[in-house]
Amino acid sequence: MRYMLLICADESAQVDEVDPIEPWLDKAGARRLDGSQLRPVADATTVRVRGGEVVVSDGPFAETKEQIAGFDLIEAGDLDEALEIAAAHPVAKFGTVEVRPLWED
């Protein structure tokens, strides 16, 4: 199964020390299909179409304390395997990793 790991963290929080990502990349290996860190929400733009009108605005889709800071698309046998990979992500130590299965039939 494929799972999207949404790497969420509070951008404004001061985190003393973030573990390097390389050991995690090694651990995930070929199971990590794709992924990247994202630029901060200050660089985000949202688009909505309402009544045929395109509404563009500055900022992320929701004003929450934690924002999506990155994503990783992984392939795992089951949820336990996906959770194990997610738990090893450096951001999991101070932020939150949401594990979402892809809609596949």
Partner: peptide
């Protein structure tokens, strides 16, 4: 079903 929760006794480390 959708999230892929396994049907098994978890491995020793968890």
């Amino acid at each position: 079903r959708n999230a892929g929760i396994p049907y098994r006794v978890p491995p020793a480390h968890v």
